[in-house]
Amino acid sequence: MPLLEVQNLTVEFPTRRGVLRALDGISFDINAGEVLGVVGESGAGKSLTGAAIIGLLEPPGRVAGGQILLNGSRIDNLSRDKLRPIRGKQIGAIFQDPLTTLNPLYSVGRQLVETIQTHLKLSDRDARERAVQWLEEVGIPAARQRIDAYPHEFSGGMRQRVVIALALCAEPRLVIADEPTTALDVSIQAQIIALLRGLTRDHGTSVMLVTHDMGVIAETADRVAVMYAGRIAEIGPVRDVVKHPAHPYTEGLMGSIPSLEHRVERLRQIDGAMPRLTAIPRGCAFNPRCPKVFDRCRNDRPELMEAGVTRAACWLYARGAAHV
């Protein structure tokens, strides 16, 4: 049984001009110990997916359909009080900006001890000892001396290490990491990715890694889901999605990333932009930009279907399609 099952998840935002459907029936699983990358451009719904799973949708956003199962039991319909112990203990979260995630008025030690004692039955002394261990584990030098320091006394990279310690200290089964390295410089980014990957592997934690950076996904994830306009366009093993993308959107996305290895005269570009939620086209949401568009794409909405090794929401792969 997968650790997390998301089935047909739909998230809506009621507005004065009608209901906006920000996530439209997305389904995926995360297995124990697996790293699932979620990529997509701004507004594709990747962060929203993470927020829906931990029950942190900003009102008026609401789960309008589908279900989310953790270890086989539903967590999308729990009350706030029932969800709270799950958040932190079962599902940890790492957000983009380490400065706003940490409370500036409490020392990092106090924040760690508070989190540890909320979820684990430990004495003050043991909790503090555990906090020091975690700071050491995430690579904070002189952890015992720095445990009473405040967030502003740490650099950006060190702060993100503290945030990772906070997310992992209750030993959750699943961590949702939303753009964990986007605010960091490249040399620090590599350290944080290596750290996250190493720790989650050691502790057998599953990770849902949300980012817009394909490079980070390529190096970190086992499988990847590519999102477009509130739906999953393609999902599969990371190597196959990167090297042999099936969906025309994934193909365009990969081609538009400049490479370090070889220089090309022109980057491939996908003309146009992702549609706004108020104007999602009929049929496949990608059809106005798709170089391989045909009649069916303009009328029917494709669901995920087998496309070689990966699964893609594209009519090119419909059984009996003559267009492949």
Partner: peptide, 16 residues
């Protein structure tokens, strides 16, 4: 060395 790259699928590296 530090930059995550598409060509690095599955490879590991030693960060500085």
């Amino acid at each position: 060395d530090a930059i995550p790259d598409l060509d690095m699928v599955g490879k590991s590296r030693t960060p500085v």
